[in-house]
Nucleic acid binder design. Structure first.
Lengths: 337, 337
DNA sequence: CTGAAAGCGCTTACAG
DNA sequence: CTGAAAGCGCTTACAG
């Protein structure tokens, strides 16, 4: 049990403790000779500056808090990995809190995060109370909502253009000749769920069509599967289902096959996200791609800028997604694809 | 930008700074009256003790470092979530590092982790050099390998009984009447890959069978798919494939279907892990379950015990898995299932 | 029970 | 360039 400190390195190198600190502080002044002596001693002792002590005095922990839930939805692990990589490249680490379900629970978790003096907070797939948003701002900690919008609390958010993406998907279905189009929506307690539903409704209305059905899938596989079964057991049944995200769409496809239907032939299914699994042959899911890399870049960009500038002015970034054609939905006639 | 400190709370409450600290330190002595005054002032100011400062003086950061890779394999996000929940319940947080591919890269990452003064390190799906293992021990930081074994470095590890599980899977296939059994193995650079392959070979030998084929799938989907295609295009083709993990098995199933074969009828496929996706109807994969919850419990148990006791004596835990019967493999005749 | 003081391991003005 | 010293926000003996 031997934690090496800068003082021990200083003694061995025959310099002051401040000299050691300077050698390990980029941009601080130290002569070549001093640096060499210090590095040698540090090497021999196995010294690394204590990040916590550094954080205390500098006021920067170089940790970003990430609150995440829904890890069974492949979108989030993929995002976590991308976020972590991008942040590590800039010298930040992720302190991860898995979120409980309740809003109070999440507030609690965010407070814990703030106690750790994180330099910023990314909340993925969860909401935050206005009260807490205000306290984070008071503490000078930028908070960014990833894949969730939340107006009015002065929080930054990065999303894809959910409404537009849903319109795109719906129009594609309409152009494909479908008329009885149902929507198994994302959780209506979330902005993504609401925005995508709004896009669906707008596109249907534009085409003069009434929704065949509209249900809240709660972003839950079992719920979506149940809804899909109910839908196709009715008569007439829908000829297409636009599903609020890929995770539910996989369940929908499983349910439809269980009913003896072949997606893309008997009924069309379109999802939202384009998680890696959507491209796997077993699902081959037509979907709207959320541009994850660009969302991650924007997130890291905004957060680090706010940290560096010490300003908490919020930003709202919406990145357009694109329709990815695969086999789960019939194509419009004459589509070159 | 107002970080509230214990001194400010003390002033408002009319007590000393030490009194404030005691009120927030479980088990420390403070009168009811003092506690009440302090809590009131803290509440009004929005005070929370600075975890970093606490960590500095107590020597306990209550952070556990997690090094993780392969997040596209659903086993790891699932493990991450379970680990995080179990740790949070005990007052620990996860500082996450996504691992680069090289061993040197991982060592670098582990050193970063140690600089953050984490109380313990969990390395999931990655290996660590002996050199670094020794340094962690010297620093008194327990290191645990999750889902990887590594003998001789004095590191704790928690795995499932990989060899035994693979024997179980292989015997099941043999009892099912298969004779031309191929193994698309897990990466042979990992203990899980080697142990499962050893189990496969042992069970085959016991039955007096020669492996139909043996290839390293590298835990990579595309590699496994390519191997599966090569295998079934040869003549005769295998009547069963035991795959080193579920993630590859999904690719194998996709590849087999692409060749016009129906898993469970034309050819049997068995995986390893039992990730949630294995139960989804699209794959319906027969597999060996890695008992994730028990692996997580053991991990948290060992790590917290080592932290509390300050001892770094390593432990090796191997938890037996169980065969989960689904539709991707033919059952033995007369099997009640 | 409570306050004054030391100290955790650093960084950063401040002099020289 | 370099050292002595202050200070980051706490916890914890030490007296009282």
């Amino acid at each position: 049990m031997n934690k090496i400190t800068s003082a021990q390195v200083a003694q061995r190198a025959g310099v002051s403790q401040s000299a050691v600190s300077r050698v390990f502080t980029p941009g601080a002044s130290a002569s070549k000779a001093t640096a060499a002596k210090v590095r040698k001693a540090a090497q021999e002792l196995g010294y690394r500056p204590n990040s916590l002590a550094r954080a205390m005095v500098s006021g920067k922990s170089r940790m970003i808090g990430l609150v995440v839930a829904y890890l069974e939805n492949q979108f989030y692990p993929t995002a976590l990995e991308a976020l972590s990589n991008a942040l590590q490249a800039r010298g930040y680490q992720l302190l991860v809190f898995t979120a409980p379900n309740s809003t109070e629970g999440i507030d609690q978790v965010v407070e814990d995060l703030m106690a750790y003096q994180v330099d910023g907070i990314i909340a993925a797939s969860v909401s935050i109370t206005s009260d807490l948003a205000g306290r984070a701002r008071a503490a000078g900690i930028p908070v960014l909502l990833f894949n969730r919008g939340q107006a009015g609390d002065g929080l930054s958010n990065v999303t894809s253009a959910n409404r537009k993406g849903a319109e795109l998907a719906t129009r594609f279905l309409i152009e494909g000749g479908h008329r009885r189009i149902a929507h198994i929506a994302g959780w209506q307690g979330s902005s993504t769920g609401r925005d995508r539903q709004a896009g669906f409704l707008a596109a249907m209305e534009d085409a003069g069509l009434a929704p065949f059905a509209l249900v809240d899938g709660m972003y839950d596989r079992a719920t979506a599967m149940g809804s899909a079964r109910d839908l196709v057991r009715s008569s007439p049944r829908p000829d297409a289902i636009f599903v609020g995200n890929d995770h539910m769409a996989f369940g929908v496809i499983d349910a439809l096959r269980g009913e003896g239907l072949v997606p893309g032939r008997d009924i069309s299914v379109v999802g939202y996200d384009d998680v890696p699994l959507a491209a796997w042959e077993a699902y081959d899911l037509t979907t709207i791609r959320q541009p994850l890399n660009r969302m991650v870049e924007a997130t890291v960009e905004i957060l680090t800028a706010q940290i560096d500038a010490g300003d908490t002015a919020h930003q709202t970034i919406e990145i357009e997604g694109e329709l990815i054609l695969r086999g789960s939905a019939r194509l419009p006639d004459g589509d070159p694809e």
